[in-house]
Each structure stands twice: as structure tokens, then as C-alpha cells.
């Protein structure tokens, strides 16, 4: 993929929004990959969390918003606890989820109506409530 880098692109509006919601400085990341290496769900992610950070700074907003990485993130804070640069990556993942969930189209990741009765019977409140907090607007 050919990527053109410019000052304007690196300081793009999307990356700024992610920084604002997460309170994290994306530029602090030096791409060591520690976050992705320790992530328990990275096997199911299209891009590693470290790639999502770099893509955001390169202005690849669409690629980031279309990947499943932040939806797969379980907010377990393993990356956060191990980042040598002190970045709270879990907050960055949350910020990207919210960029989508806060749009006026309200494109929720999870539809209650689609969960089967049997499943609803089965799961504990704690799973449902935290799931709704993470996947719905």
C-alpha cells in the first residue's frame, strides 16, 4: 500500500479525536509491538493494536474504522500494563469504538434483538451489561 505522508496527514482530525477521547498521546508510541504481543485476543484481530495506532497517525481512518481490532478488544488492560511508553492502549481502543458509536447513525455493534432467548437465559447480567456498555451507543 502506498502511503503519502504529510504534516497535515499525521495531525489528522481522526487521530486528534482519538487522542482527545482517550487522553493518550499517539505520538509517544514507538511501535515496539509489546501491546500486540501480550494481547490475549490479537489472534482474532485484523490489525494489531500497535498497527492501529500507526495507521491512525498516517491518516488511514477508513482502514482503522473498518478493521475489527477495537471491537475484539476485551479491555483487559494487559497492553496498558506492559507498554514501555506508558500508553493506555485500552483507552485508545475505547476511543475508536466511541468514534463510531457516537455518530448520529447509531451503528451499534450489538443488537439485543439478535441474541437468542436461550443465550439470554444463559448469560449473567455482568456479561450483558458490560457488553452493552462496550458495543452500543
Amino acid at each position: 500500500m502506498k502511503i503519502e505522508i504529510s504534516r497535515g496527514k499525521v495531525h489528522n482530525a481522526f487521530a486528534q479525536k482519538v487522542e482527545e477521547i482517550s487522553g493518550q498521546n499517539l505520538f509517544a508510541c514507538y511501535q515496539c509491538g509489546n501491546c500486540t504481543a501480550g494481547c490475549p485476543v490479537s489472534f482474532a484481530m485484523d490489525l494489531g493494536p500497535h498497527q492501529v495506532i500507526r495507521y491512525s497517525l498516517l491518516g488511514l481512518e477508513e482502514e482503522v474504522l473498518e478493521c475489527n481490532t477495537f471491537w475484539m478488544c476485551a479491555s483487559c488492560l494487559q497492553c496498558t500494563s506492559r507498554c514501555p511508553k506508558g500508553l493506555d492502549i485500552a483507552r485508545i481502543m475505547e476511543a475508536i469504538r466511541l468514534v463510531i458509536l457516537r455518530r448520529k447513525e447509531r451503528l451499534d455493534r450489538l443488537e439485543v434483538a439478535e441474541l437468542s432467548d436461550e443465550f439470554l437465559e444463559r448469560i449473567p447480567q455482568i456479561a450483558l451489561i458490560s457488553g452493552f456498555r462496550k458495543f452500543t451507543s
Binding site: A74, S75, A127, S130, G131, R133, K134, F135
Partner: peptide, 11 residues
């Protein structure tokens, strides 16, 4: 390690 947390609902 994480057990997947709320991903039992999401994925």
C-alpha cells in the same frame, strides 16, 4: 490472562 470478558457477548 483475560478470559475474554464481555466478548462472550460480542464475539
Amino acid at each position: 490472562e483475560c478470559c475474554g470478558a464481555f466478548q462472550s457477548v460480542g464475539a
